[in-house]
Amino acid sequence: MHTLPLLRDRTKLAIVDAHHHLWDLAAGHYPWLQDEYQGAAFFLGEYQTLRRNYLAPEYLRDTSGYNVIASVHVEAERSRSEQVDETHWLHEVRHSTGLPSVVVPHVSFIQADRDDILASHARYPEVRGIRSKPVTARSPQESVRGQAGTMQDPRWLEGLSALERYGFSWDLRVPFWHLAEAAEVAATFPRIRIAINHTGLPWDRSDEGLSQWRTGLAALAAHPNVFIKLSEFGLAGGRWDEQSNRRVIRDAVAIFGTERAMFASNLPVSSISASFGVIVETVLGALADYDDLAIGRVFSQNAMAFYRIDARGW
């Protein structure tokens, strides 16, 4: 069982936030934030509150009262013509503010200049991996299997394989009905470390939906190169279901173990549904039966190892 002092005093719990975003709308072009508003088409629903600058001061404000010792910035859907510009900007932000600690930029695995973009990212010292989203189906009832840009596309797989050349990890972001396919990819590339984003996006909280989600996670967990981020539990319309969220967290940790699960906030996107404090308390509540060593792994140590973070500067 856990020892109460650590869990009572949240200020002493070291946190590595394994997934968040920053953006300056004057410094770059973010189509989803600056172009035509998509409204309810966004996976969490209305996101008007996100269409503003979100910089280091805002992140520090939102995480105040908690001991965040390091963070991982994951690409924020900046214009795909500005992929390296985002990496450059983030290194400037890190130099002036101390965060983010490391960076996970974007490159499409099928873009014509993929190798040049990868090489350019690799010149920046804090780049640790790549997030590149495959083409996915809109629902579990549809299939895009084998189409261009999917996880079966030979050119897409060739692009993924290029990460190994740089020692980059891959941030995997697909809805739960594609997790089993992602496990096939993980089996093909055992030397590429993979981080499942947003707990595998278990949007369907019915027994049938969660069963399919757990099956997909179990297939991925069979491969030791795969880790999972405990993040983004919000549901459509900005709904936060505390009881269901705790169940999802417990199930994910039971499948992957505390050695391959990482806490992450997904700020500021997660603020549509919950504050940083609510997210932390929800994860801690779900892990109440785990001891302090396990909680320390989930909240900091696993992310530091996966993303090769030196938190001494924080």
Rank of each mutant, 00 (worst) to 15 (best):
A218C: 08
R131C: 09
S108V: 07
A18Y: 05
R155I: 11
D17W: 04
A119V: 08
R131A: 03
Y37W: 01
I130V: 14
P154E: 07
Q38W: 12
L118Q: 15
L50A: 13
W314S: 06
R8H: 04
G296S: 06
I110R: 07
R260E: 07
Q147G: 15
F299Q: 00
A56N: 14
R250N: 07
R52F: 11
Y37M: 14
E208Q: 06
P224I: 01
Q83D: 12
P202D: 00
D153F: 02
G296F: 02
E281N: 05
Q212K: 15
V104G: 11
S231P: 00
H95G: 08
Q147V: 03
A236F: 15
E46Q: 13
L13M: 04
K229Q: 14
A288M: 03
Q243I: 07
Q243L: 13
S300G: 13
F168T: 05
Q152N: 10
S231E: 03
I192L: 12
E181H: 15
V298Y: 05
G45C: 13
S270V: 06
M151N: 08
D35A: 02
D241P: 14
A14S: 06
V185A: 01
F256E: 07
R128D: 01
V144N: 13
T188F: 02
N197A: 06
Y59A: 00
S161C: 09
A27Q: 06
Q83W: 04
N197G: 02
L293R: 06
P202K: 02
F109G: 15
W177K: 14
R250P: 01
D153L: 08
H223Y: 02
V226K: 00
H29N: 12
M304T: 08
L50H: 10
F42S: 09
T136D: 02
H91S: 03
W23E: 03
R312F: 00
F42D: 03
A56D: 00
T150D: 05
W213R: 09
S231M: 01
